[in-house]
Computed example of a mutant assay.
Amino acid sequence: MANKLAIVTGASTGIGFELAHLAAQNGYDLIVAADEPLIDAAAADFKTHGVSVESVEADLSTAEGIDRLLATTNGRQIHVLCANAGRGLGHGFLDQSVADWRKVIDTNVFGTSYILQKVLARMVAHGEGKVLVTGSIAGHIPGAFQAVYNASKAYLDNFVPAIINEIKDHKGVTITNLMPGPVETEFFDRGGMMDTDVGQSKSKSDPADVAKDGWEAMMAGKSAITSGWKNKVQTVLTHVVPDSVLAEQHRAMAEPGSGNK
């Protein structure tokens, strides 16, 4: 019998890379995707676990890219989807190009929503499936100097529980929202945030630990998991601290040049 199939997006590095390893270690065949050629090298690593791996380089901010990714299943049942692809962006909103901030929204909001709609429809039809969405505790914080990114994660942190409720009668299908804080990945370099306090911080989470938390929560059918005890505390505080204070705190971490103070 063929192994069950898992799709992991944003799997070339970071949390997605670690999630793909976990899926392979647990015997899932893989389709992994990212918007960079590095995904092919990552796929070679995943193959060491003895499962079938197919890599797809695609623009996951577009319907065309996601459709091309899903076409590689050839109609095969999808048992696990880790919708992890995401894009960050630092600096002040007025200093960002429209193309850059739109790419964040198209990837984090449209791309994630589109692949969820497509895959969840197939899972519901089969009566089985598990989905992990990489949200963020940033979705609870007004993100001064990271405004569009945080707002895009606020969308996901709100969207996921709504869809969980909509499909609650389909007992075999579960969705889990993974909400980490800052993670030691290429995110900050790619988002132009290496001169910030958060970009230079040595206390960021290990992506392997975050992926493990997310994978275990997804397998258990939990609706959400905040990875890391400090992030759990931060999430609680966002419900009692005024937005103006949260925005100022975020500014101290994310303002360009704050890492040199």
Rank of each mutant, 00 (worst) to 15 (best):
S201N: 10
F188N: 14
D206Q: 07
S97F: 02
V173D: 02
I137K: 01
S52H: 11
M179V: 09
T226R: 01
N260W: 09
A43K: 01
T112M: 14
L81W: 00
A247R: 15
F93D: 11
T176C: 10
S258T: 11
T238C: 09
T196Y: 00
C82R: 04
A71N: 09
A41Q: 13
A99G: 10
G65A: 07
K103C: 10
V245T: 10
D195M: 08
V210E: 05
A151T: 09
L156G: 04
P242L: 05
I105K: 02
E57N: 14
D243C: 12
V104H: 00
M193C: 07
A85K: 03
Q96M: 08
H250L: 14
P207F: 02
I175C: 04
L19E: 09
V233E: 09
G214F: 00
F187Q: 06
D45Q: 13
S113N: 11
L70C: 09
D195E: 15
H126C: 15
V240R: 03
F46R: 10
T134M: 05
V109H: 05
I164E: 15
R76V: 14
D59Y: 03
T185P: 05
T185M: 04
V51M: 04
A6T: 10
R87N: 08
A33R: 01
T48L: 07
L30N: 02
L60S: 05
E57W: 03
D95M: 11
L178G: 01
E166M: 04
A151G: 05
I137V: 13
A63Y: 01
V56K: 00
D100G: 10
S113G: 09
I78G: 01
Q234G: 15
A252Q: 15
I164A: 12
A224P: 10
N177E: 12
T73C: 06
D106K: 02
G228L: 01
R190Y: 06
V104E: 04
R87I: 12
A41W: 01
A63D: 11
T73W: 00
R122M: 13
K204Q: 08
G181M: 03
L81V: 06
K222A: 08
D209C: 10
I225C: 05
V80P: 04
S201Y: 03
G221T: 09
S136A: 06
H79D: 15
D59I: 11
E255T: 13
D169G: 12
N150F: 01
S97I: 12
F145K: 13
L30S: 02
A99L: 11
L5C: 05
G172N: 07
G92K: 14
D169Q: 13
L246Y: 01
W101F: 15
S136E: 07
V173L: 03
N3H: 08
Q200V: 13
A83T: 09
T134A: 06
V133G: 04
S203W: 06
R122N: 14
V124I: 15
T62E: 08
L30R: 00
D209P: 07
R251D: 14
L178M: 04
V53R: 02
K47G: 03
G192W: 00
L60N: 06
